[in-house]
Design a protein around this nucleic acid. Sequence first.
DNA 1: GGCCAGGACACCA
DNA 2: TGGTGTCATGGC
Length: 221
Amino acid sequence: MAGKQLQKIFDTLLAQYAPRHWWPGETPFEVCVGAILTQNTNWGNVEKAIANLKTADRLSITGIATLMPDELAALIRPAGYFNVKATRLQAFTAFVLQGYHGSLDQLFAEPWQTTRHELLAVKGIGPETADSILLYAGQKPSFVVDTYTRRIFSRLGLVDEQFSYDRLRDYFMDRLPLDTALFNEYHALIVELGKLVCRPKPQCAACCLSTNCQHYAHSAG
DNA sequence: GGCCAGGACACCA
DNA sequence: TGGTGTCATGGC
């Protein structure tokens, strides 16, 4: 029943916005970098940081791992929190180098639940970042929950806004088939809707649910 | 000039 | 276990 509801919401979003073809990133490693850099940051800023890494020919596991922390921080400065994220990027590259000989293919060859557990043990990789890496870089069926997911589905009355990350994630994974393509598109569509209409402090519940809301033009800027 | 953006972590009660 | 402060740039 609830699964059908989630499927219907997905179908509605897909009809409204069309496939989003996520994640923006030319390689799995670029997706991993983007997942870390986008933490609490506008994607446009992340693109600038990634462009800097490409220009410096440092968008690779060893390229990032062998930079001095302050040099890496300077390159990713546009993404914000650059000192914190430089540490996190190097923690991730060290993890892949030490545990998997620098090979993402080897990392993703494990059972993905094991990979998730290991990713969460890397300092600076929380649940959303781990799930983004698994889903969009590793093509594993791990549903990604983000701020928009929480806002939208709590305002729809389907979940409690106070749900933990894992409980919210379980809500989707217990009700949808473990389908990588479905999870990929579902999260992308949620973000698309969220960016357009889901403001942190809506004037009414419809502000995050439909572009037809009378407040939409105002709240969406 | 303030708000917001595709979080995570340390610290404290 | 839950709440709060910190990390920071750039667009609107």
